[in-house]
Design a protein around this nucleic acid. Sequence first.
DNA 1: CTATTTGTTTATCC
DNA 2: AGGATAAACAAATA
Length: 278
Amino acid sequence: MPELAEVEYFRKQWNPGLGGKVEAVRLHEGKRVFRDLKKPRIQLDGLRGSILEDSRAHGKNLLFHFRRDKNPQHLWLGVHLGMTGKLRTERKAAYAEDKHDHFVIVQAEHVLVFNDYRLFGKITFDQKDDDYHPPEWWQKLPPEVLSSRFSLNYLSKILERRGKAPIKAVLLMQEFFPGLGNWLVDEILWQAGIDPRRPAGSLKEDEVQELRNKIRSVSRGALKTIGEDWRDPPKKWMVHERWSSKKESEKICPQTKEPLRIETVGGRTTYWSPAIQK
DNA sequence: CTATTTGTTTATCC
DNA sequence: AGGATAAACAAATA
């Protein structure tokens, strides 16, 4: 489920725990979500006694910052939601445990829960006792699509370099377009009027310009709706057809009212409207 | 029972 | 060597 907007939404779900002290952590130790930790139990136990200070999102990555007075002072919990990861907070007294609650942070008032039934998500942990610095891997993340570093020139270079791959596949590469996922990319290409099968290198200058505009406006629009409170993106967007419960054969382009084409492109199910995406 | 899934990593092929 | 594509991961849902 989670692309940049959903990730931002889930980031906020732990906000009730801000300022709270960690009393204990609970985890399903053998689960795949801890695959990057050598000793999950021992490492994550290091959060005990620390206070949840703040959090941030970058593309599909989340980072939760914990702090305490004795060394190490700064503790960094990384969360990737994979395909089915979710975060939620419950009042401790009312906590109803689900069998896929693989990681739970217990505070005085709340429990902060990471739930992921397909286990493609990932929990990481870093600590250092010097000054405030996010971990190395976080600092090396690529420019966000809504940052000023995401320039037209930067985009052109990427499309040139990955010129032979379908544009759909290229836009899904997290090392270039952090946070874009399957539905956002389809929406972007639909709004930009670009056929998802086109080789990335075949886009003309004005198409690249339009693509950049749509990458940014669709990302912004998704963040303002789903990212805020899970409300629906703008009514005119194509994604509503995709999410509708209609049979595939009955899904239509909101613009042309003709059937959408649904095929695998770049290894992923792709929706597009042939009459307006060239 | 079979096919499908909004993600990423690894293996394999070109 | 570097890039493109397929498979694997795991579990729920249609």
